[in-house]
Design a protein around this nucleic acid. Structure first.
Lengths: 243, 243
DNA sequence: TCAAAAGTGTTGACATTACACCCATGT
DNA sequence: ACATGGGTGTAATGTCAACACTTTTGA
């Protein structure tokens, strides 16, 4: 299958480990083709060129499946990056010349972000060089991927403050504290525990189970599930008042 | 300047005539190259292929400048459309084959919307075949432009309910009723006049002038201006509570 | 003098914030 | 027994929704 040389997708994979927000990155190395000397090393998002006769969304799904093994997970297009000087860093130009000699110097990339429960990816097994980094503490990034991640995060924040998508980052059964930590981690603010619980428990689509946490060295918490079905049935698309 | 055959931008130009929300469309006709018989006619967004060595955002600005004469107006990228079957209607395939024979059958388009005060465009003069249509009552559209407009409108709604961008659609000096009608037209809901005014007048960046409407057959309204400067200085990026 | 939109305040319901103590479990 | 996070209520404040009459102008 031939690639489309001037069109790629990049996926910002967000994960939550019940403590903090993480981003999945892949190690990139460039070695001199003759001497094999290590020229540089850094990290990049999971990306690939779109293939001929492939829908954009499918390209993003394919990349995700290849890099994480996960299928049919939450995936949302957030922005397209098309400045002609996107690849301006000398190391990136060198890398492109070595790895994709057929690629033009004007590549636009469509950014997607996806949300996964970190526990579902075991990067050590399949892809040694693909690993989680805390969103707050990322390593050196290739290309314009720092910019792409910034934009992804700000789009995720807006989305999360409008729609209940946080559950995509949690195990199916979760506690209210885990949910609160998730919101705090993504939105970068704190919530009062009582007020948070009050708010959440009045939502009909967050359903308490007759089940408690086990194996924790403190009072076990009640577990909840999210019902997308109930949400879809009861949501009312109200837009905020003008700012 | 050569075009990039598989990459285009489409601009959804929103205008407000102090009454309702409008969208700028261009008439498209295809005639049989031999008999000159009219094969079909419909309307399309303002779009064009991106040029080699042109930034995406610049391409959108160029298209807008060419089609409306306007420069440096509000322009926001909202979504990229990249399904392989985007051009599936027979009339569209026919049109592409006639007009852009070099173009591949897999073209992705980056959607932008822009906001203009309708009064600033006099389509009759420059472009007879480019005209305003009420957003609520659009004619038959080519390609997937109905879908693109839907998405643009829903993105505009979300943006408008988060940020004060409505002023881009208004004359520099406006009345509170005009602002209210604008919000009602875009968001598709009604506001109580007293509550709306209460809310707006407490915003420091909407500044009353010592000036009144003239030439109206009723009590003249006070006029206001929007200060982007004051807004930028006083805004606090608060994200909503989880839904 | 009439028509048309401008302008103006109060009240009740609801949502948001702030805040402190006891509980159940594993070690 | 202790450390850890779970679970709970109330009062003050702020925000939102509903509602009707008078004013100013041009025609």
């Amino acid at each position: 299958m031939k690639i489309i040389p001037n069109l790629s997708v990049d996926c910002v994979v967000f994960g939550f480990d019940l403590t903090k927000l993480n981003i999945l990155l892949t190690k990139r190395e460039l070695r001199d083709p003759e001497t094999d000397a290590l020229l540089f090393t850094d990290y990049t998002l999971q990306g690939h060129h779109v293939l001929e006769n492939e829908d954009l969304d499918n390209a993003a799904n394919r990349v995700l499946k290849e890099k994480t093994g996960l299928d049919s997970i939450f995936l949302e297009q957030f922005h397209t990056f098309g400045d002609t000087d996107r690849i301006k860093n000398p190391k990136d130009m060198l890398w492109v010349k070595n790895i994709y000699p057929t690629v033009t110097n004007q590549v636009i990339t469509v950014g997607y972000y996806s949300l996964v429960n970190s526990a579902k990816i075991h990067p050590d097994k399949k892809h040694e060089d693909t690993m989680w980094f805390p969103a707050e503490n990322l390593p050196e990034l290739g290309f314009d991927h720092a910019e792409i991640i910034d934009k992804a995060l700000s789009c995720l924040r807006i989305k999360l403050s409008r729609e209940p998508i946080g559950f995509e980052l949690l195990p199916e059964k979760f506690t209210l504290s885990q949910l609160q930590i998730l919101y705090e981690a993504v939105l970068g603010r704190k919530y009062d525990r009582r007020n948070f619980r009050k708010k959440i428990t009045q939502l009909k689509y967050i359903i308490p189970l007759d089940e408690k946490q086990t194996g924790v060295a403190h009072k076990p918490a009640q577990v909840f599930i999210f019902s997308k079905d109930v949400y879809e049935r009861t949501k009312k698309d109200k837009l905020g008042f003008p700012i």
